[in-house]
């Protein structure tokens, strides 16, 4: 079991993911430069947080064209587990692996704080270690995390159980209190909160551990 962590120019949570997975949980990680195409031997891929390519144009808009992501799209289509955290979630929506878009927080502030989330794991394989309706604490750190989609899409995703993470107290104006979404086949998860920052007891909170540990089960 090895996790690939994509590194774009401007990624800044890649090492945090490496530390959470390998340092805290003992899951080997391999960093994947954005120009690489070789995913051989990887059993999951993480798109970490940060400001890929400076987030020019829109968050995730340029990253979408990275060579490594062509392989990640194919990997996801084969059922491979793909996780997008924060900027990674923005990239997954730009890629079309998850519907909707993330835009500027309703109150304009960059919000950086612990946040309570309700988990509805459903068929999402990344969340198999959490209980139905469990409330967990994960930090958020974003300026553009307001999830937007049309009401019909939101309704369809809610019916299908794809709205797997919701804010208890909506910090950014997201429709439907959406904090995280899973695709219909359960292998692609995008979320604005940072599970990798809740894996080491020294930084407070361990609620993110089970998300990475789900790959071992």
């Amino acid at each position: 079991m090895t996790i690939g962590v994509v590194v774009f120019p401007g990624s800044n949570c890649d090492r945090d993911v490496g530390w959470a997975a390998e340092g805290c949980l003992g899951i080997p990680t391999r960093f994947l430069w954005h120009e690489e195409r070789d995913l051989a031997g990887l059993e999951a891929v993480v798109l970490p947080g940060g400001f890929s390519y400076g987030d020019y144009l829109r968050c995730g808009a340029i990253a979408r064209f990275a060579p490594v992501l062509e392989e990640v799209v194919a990997f996801a289509a084969r059922g491979g587990p793909v996780l997008g955290i924060c900027n990674g979630f923005q990239i997954l929506t730009e890629l079309g692996l998850l519907p909707g878009a993330l835009t500027r927080n309703s109150r304009l502030h960059f919000v950086c704080e612990p946040t309570a989330l309700t988990v509805r794991p459903g068929e999402c394989r990344w969340l198999s270690g959490y209980d139905e309706a469990e409330v967990i604490q994960l930090p958020i750190a974003h300026g553009e995390g307001r999830y937007q989609c049309d009401p019909a899409s939101l309704e369809a995703m809610e019916q299908a159980g794809q709205v797997v993470l919701r804010y208890e107290a909506n910090p950014n104006g997201s429709v439907g209190d959406v904090a995280g979404l899973c695709n219909s086949t359960g292998n692609v998860l995008g979320l604005m909160p940072h599970p990798e920052r809740a894996c080491d007891p020294r930084t407070g909170g361990l609620d993110g551990q089970r998300l990475f540990a789900s790959l071992l089960g």
Binding site: L57, R58, A61, E94, G100, A101, C149
Partner: peptide, 8 residues
């Protein structure tokens, strides 16, 4: 496909 995101 690039300059605008038709979702928003």
């Amino acid at each position: 496909r690039l300059l605008a995101n038709p979702v928003i």
